[in-house]
Design a protein around this nucleic acid. Structure first.
Lengths: 152, 152
DNA sequence: TGTTGTATGTCAGAAGACTGACATGAGCAG
DNA sequence: CTGCTCATGTCAGTCTTCTGACATACAACA
């Protein structure tokens, strides 16, 4: 409708659509997490800790797709507010294992239900075949994008 | 592998995979745009203006998935650097039509080629059927997510 | 006419994330 | 053992984006 060969047609560009989808997802998640006073990264951190207890700051940062500096700031706040506990000494290296407190677990439980409802809504408009393909497609794109990304 | 019913399994969660994919795309785009001294939002703004000349600040903001306040800051910088021109008076309402300068067009041309190469790489790992399905899937997810999002 | 609602541009302050930098600890080659 | 590399934690400063707020402009309507 708007392209003649050069340039990127935003209407059909998968990159643009991907950005749009992630933006919509982010908005929807922020909306359901707001009642809990929780940001998306905040929630991601707790969810990661629930599935991988004892993760280090750097591991959590990678899992939440932020820098370890950003995750560090968040972890300090979460510890101060009693959602997580961090080992005072590193059992090995410098990595300090982090774990959820019972308060963190309770908080996560509610948030997780809210987030699940968003994901359900997101998948609701897809056909059965689409639903079974989407994960593989996204994983393939990630793999391709990282091809010559971390090999400079 | 890690879930028993409650919680969100990050390994298979489409929401998480979507976030991961958009993060990878963002990183890859930042990498190819850095040589041009251009951020992703910066590029998105120019690309939007190329396809929809005369767009207003608010229209550009919606197209780039940021707030109009953020886009306003960017536009002021772009105008000062000579990439765009903004009408001094609104022909109708308050919206100030914005257009690319020749410098902006030249700058976009190079950036656009770089971004296209990233998108090509992203699609490279997909099968023919996946390639023809991905746009529809993303659009469906966006539509579902916005269902009761802007109807509070 | 004037009132109400919606959309826009813009300023100011706050929050979140990033880059840069430094020190520490582990692993490995020599 | 020593030097090198890599990963980690953390502090500091900066940047980008967001939220909040206000004024303006048009449209719809009583």
């Amino acid at each position: 409708m708007s392209q003649d060969g050069s340039g990127v047609d935003l209407e059909t560009s998968v990159g643009y659509l991907l950005k749009e989808a992630s933006s919509a997802l982010r908005l929807a998640m922020e909306e359901v997490l707001r009642p809990f006073g929780m940001t998306v990264t905040h929630y991601a951190c707790l969810e990661l800790l629930a599935q991988r207890p004892g993760s280090s700051n750097s591991e959590l940062a990678r899992g939440a797709f932020v820098t370890r500096q950003s995750m560090n700031v968040l972890l300090q706040a979460l510890e101060q507010d009693g959602y997580v506990t961090r080992a005072k000494e590193a059992p090995v290296g410098k990595a300090l294992p982090t774990r959820l407190t019972s308060r963190g677990r309770r908080s996560l439980e509610m948030a997780s239900a809210a987030v699940r409802s968003v994901e359900m809504r997101m998948m609701a408009g897809l056909t059965e075949t689409e639903r079974s393909n989407v994960a593989g497609i996204l994983r393939s794109m990630v793999r391709s994008l990282r091809q010559s990304d971390d090999t400079p």
